[in-house]
Design a binder for these strands. Structure first.
Length: 382
RNA sequence: GGGGAGAUACCGAAGCGGUCAAACGGGGCAGACUGUAAAUCUGUUGGCUCAGCCUUCGUAGGUUCGAAUCCUGCUCUCCCCA
């Protein structure tokens, strides 16, 4: 079943020493320069950040939303009445919505899986709901993200082979239903949407390879790798990414879901990944952890109490050059909401800077050396 | 002046003869966080030559095999009445 190309992906350069690539993905809400990091905005908000700062200061090119969360609250009728998520949350750049597959995993104890789909209880009020590949596509049509994700099952990192295989096959059958529904329906708000399949297979190379070859048949506009960074060893994640990117078409973007640390991002760019998302810069920022080009800081540590230097002299955000470490520590230790906002803004600006710099290095083919130098700094505890 | 209550670790506050280095909360310190049920969660918080020992429950004595816990003096705090 060939799919019409909805989103152009232009490959601009590939590293001479690895699979790292730089490209441009075009959506109706703008172009995305890859590799890219996508801030996570689960409930229709990148927590604590105004869309103006997201765009102008952080320079995010695309953000995420979540089907499960938006479906439960505010509810799809509200999003439709608003004219789609872009209108609702005042973000006019590209949006990608996750399908709720991850919630099937993370809310594991309040859901029940069947061939039909996933029956689950709302974490908000305990009410019962059913997600199927079909209604998840419908909901994502209503939310109106530029990129929508297939409904999958995300298995825990320690799943045994039999379960991993069974689960992968369920995800594959669901994928057919997702594309059927996707082709039966159309975008609601006058711009195109693309559907990305998700490669599962847990930590088993043969399953990953089968899954990668299976998703290729759909000739999608991009391909995602899911079910990683869910408890398996870091080296295993890299191995799985290598197995999968070796199989996926080179002329389409690859999205590694839910990853990761700054180190994970550089390592996976090196292995041919183009798109990333992760809650780490936002959540860890709210919890007082800062990622910088010189290393990792726990802002709650006493050592910053009287450090009146700027947050990050190399930082990409205005917050880095406006506030001091001592002040930010005070805000975070005091539980002041501005502390969480500043830390989040810093971390997101850093993540975006990191992938932008990686892109620049891929374009001039100095990525390998730069990555090696950066890895030493990025993992340092300050 | 008379009557009453109380003083516990950084703060608040339990404990009222042994199982108390002392519950619980706050604060402090540290750690975790990877397609967000997270502005959350966990650990730790007298000292040391650390599976043991030493010092500690206002202070000075006393009773007891044994006291934060019982008795006496002292110091201080709070409340009520004049």
């Amino acid at each position: 079943m060939p799919q019409n190309i909805i989103m152009e992906f232009e490959l601009k350069a590939t590293s001479s020493e690895s699979r790292a690539r730089a490209g441009i993905l075009s959506t109706d809400h703008g172009k995305i320069e890859t590799p890219i990091f996508m801030p996570v905005g689960t409930a229709g908000t990148v927590k604590g950040v105004h869309s103006k700062d997201l765009k102008e200061d952080i320079q995010a090119q695309i953000i995420l939303g979540n089907t499960y969360h938006l479906y439960l609250r505010p509810g799809i009728s509200v999003i439709e009445a608003a004219g789609g998520l872009h209108k609702f949350n005042a973000w006019d750049g590209p949006i990608l919505t996750d399908s709720g597959g991850f919630q099937v995993f993370s809310l594991g104890d309040i859901r029940k899986l069947s061939e039909e789909g996933a029956k689950f209880q709302s974490h908000i009020d305990g009410s019962y709901h059913m997600f199927t590949p079909e209604n998840v596509i419908d909901i994502q049509r209503s939310i109106g993200a530029d990129i929508v994700m297939a409904f999958d099952e995300c298995t825990p990192g320690d799943a045994d082979y039999a379960y991993a295989k069974k689960s992968m096959e369920l995800t594959q059958r669901w994928l057919h239903r997702c594309f059927d529904q996707f082709h039966k329906t159309e975008a609601k708000y006058g711009y195109e949407q693309a559907l990305f399949p998700i490669v599962q297979g847990n930590t088993y190379p043969d399953l990953r390879k089968l899954a990668a070859n299976h998703v290729k048949e759909f000739n999608a506009d991009g391909y995602a790798i899911g079910g990683l960074s869910v408890g398996e060893a870091e080296e295993v994640m890299y191995e799985m990414v290598e197995v999968v990117t070796a199989e996926l078409p080179v002329d389409k973007p690859r999205y590694l879901m839910g990853v990761g640390t700054p180190k994970n991002i550089l390592e996976n760019i090196d292995r041919g990944i183009d798109m990333f998302d992760c809650v780490m810069p936002t959540r860890n920022g709210r919890n007082g952890m800062l990622f910088t080009s010189e290393g990792i800081l726990n802002m709650r540590n006493q050592k910053w109490q009287n450090d009146h230097s700027l947050i990050d002299i190399n930082g990409a955000s205005y917050v880095d050059h406006t506030y001091t470490k001592a002040y930010l520590r005070h805000l975070i230790v005091s539980g002041e909401m501005l502390g969480a906002q500043i830390a989040t803004q810093h971390n997101l600006a850093f993540y975006i800077w990191l992938v932008k710099e990686a892109r620049r290095r891929i374009l001039d083919d100095s990525f390998a050396a730069w990555k090696k130098e950066m890895l030493i700094k990025l993992t340092r505890r300050l």
